[in-house]
C-alpha cells in the first residue's frame, strides 16, 4: 500500500511538472498584457518601465525559470491587475467553488443513486421510464439555459430563492462558508442544483446500468436463496458492486465540477474561482490564470489519488498488494 502511494505520488509530480511547462508556454503565447494594463495615453518610457516591472522583457526560458523558482517557494507571481499574489487570489476564491462543487456532488449522489437503483430494479415500471427520460433531459439541456430558467422560475416568478451571490457567510476554520447560515444555504440551492443536473443524470445512468447488470448475477440469486431481506440484497450486495464505477466516474467528475463550474458561477454571480478565471482571461492577467490552472491540476491529481484509494476499499480484488495484479 505504501509502495503504491509513493509510486502514485511520483507519477503525480511528473504530471504537475509537465502541466506547468504547458501552461506557461500556452499562456506566454497569448496577447500582450501591457496593452490592457497601461492607459493608452502612456508614453514609451512608462510602457518600458511597466514591461520591466512585470519581467516581460526577459526571454521566455528565463521567465519560466524565474517562475519555477518562485513557484517552488509557493509564489506564483503577482496579479498584473490586482497587484496581490496570484496564488492567494485563487485560493481566496477556492472555498466558494469547493462549497458549490461539493454541494452539487452531494445532490447528484444523494438523488442519483437511489433513482438509478430504482430504475435499474424496475426498468419497465412507469417510474423507471420517467427517471430515464428525465436523465436524458438533464444530459441534453445546456447548463447556462437551465440556470437562467431556474432563476426565472424560483427567483423571479415565485420569489422563493435569491437569484445570485453567496448570501451571508459564517466562518469555519478561518474560511467563510455559505452553508452555515440559512441565508447562505438559500443562495446555495439554485446554483448547486444547476451544477448538479448533469452529474445527476450521469449518476442515474451509471447506477441504473450497474444495477441491471448486477441484479442478474448469480450471487444476487444466491443471496435471495439464503433468505436475505430485499433491503440487504439491494443495500449491500447490489449497492456495493455498482458503487465501483460510480466512485470512479464521480471522482473524475468532481475535479471537472470544481474546475469548470465557470458557467454556473457566471450565471449565478457566484464569487468562485471560475468567475475569477473568466475575468483574468479577459484582462490577460497571466499569473492568475497560471495559478488557477496549477491549482486545478493539483486538485485533479489529489482527487484521482483519493479515488484510487477508495476504489481499493470498495473492491477487494484490486486491493493493492504492491506487485500483485
Amino acid at each position: 500500500m505504501l509502495v503504491f502511494i509513493l509510486r502514485r505520488l511520483a507519477q503525480s509530480a511528473v504530471v504537475v511538472v509537465a502541466m506547468s511547462v504547458l501552461v506557461f508556454a500556452g499562456i506566454f503565447a497569448i496577447g500582450n498584457p501591457i496593452d490592457v494594463l497601461i492607459s493608452p495615453e502612456a508614453d514609451e518610457f512608462e510602457r518600458a518601465a511597466a514591461i520591466a516591472r512585470l519581467g516581460l522583457d526577459k526571454p521566455m526560458h528565463e521567465q519560466f525559470l524565474r517562475f519555477v523558482d518562485s513557484a517552488l517557494g509557493g509564489d506564483l507571481g503577482t496579479s498584473f491587475v490586482h497587484g496581490v499574489p496570484a496564488l492567494g487570489l485563487v485560493l481566496q476564491r477556492f472555498p466558494a467553488t469547493l462549497e458549490l462543487a461539493l454541494c452539487a456532488m452531494l445532490v447528484a449522489v444523494a438523488l442519483g443513486i437511489p433513482l438509478g437503483l430504482w430504475a435499474g430494479l424496475k426498468p419497465d415500471s412507469l417510474a423507471g421510464r420517467v427517471i430515464m427520460t428525465g436523465s436524458i433531459l438533464g444530459f441534453s439541456l445546456p447548463t447556462f439555459w437551465v440556470g437562467m430558467m431556474l432563476i426565472m422560475a424560483f427567483a423571479v416568478t415565485l420569489g422563493w430563492l435569491p437569484a445570485g451571490g453567496r448570501g451571508e457567510t459564517a466562518s469555519l476554520f478561518g474560511v467563510q462558508w455559505s452553508f452555515l447560515t440559512a441565508d447562505g444555504l438559500a443562495h446555495l440551492i439554485l446554483p448547486a442544483v444547476n451544477l448538479a443536473l448533469f452529474k445527476l443524470s450521469l449518476v442515474i445512468r451509471l447506477a441504473r446500468a450497474g444495477t441491471r447488470e448486477v441484479a442478474l448475477q448469480d450471487y444476487v440469486k444466491f443471496a435471495r436463496a439464503k433468505g436475505l431481506a430485499p433491503a440487504r440484497i439491494v443495500g449491500v450486495h447490489i449497492l456495493k458492486n455498482i458503487m465501483i464505477p460510480v466512485v470512479t466516474v464521480l471522482g473524475l467528475e468532481l475535479g471537472s465540477v470544481i474546475a469548470f463550474s465557470v458557467v454556473t458561477e457566471s450565471v449565478f454571480a457566484w464569487p468562485g474561482m471560475g468567475k475569477l478565471l473568466i475575468d483574468s482571461i479577459l484582462q490577460l492577467d497571466r499569473p492568475v490564470v497560471i495559478a488557477y490552472l496549477l491549482v486545478t491540476v493539483l486538485l485533479f491529481v489529489v482527487i484521482n489519488l483519493i479515488v484510487d484509494l477508495v476504489y481499493s476499499l470498495l473492491d477487494p480484488r484490486i486491493r493493492l498488494g504492491g506487485g500483485r495484479a
Partner: peptide, 13 residues
Amino acid sequence: FQDPMMTLNPVLS
C-alpha cells in the same frame, strides 16, 4: 448453484 465463481459476491468477505 452451478458456477462457484459467480455465486459468491466478489466485494464481500
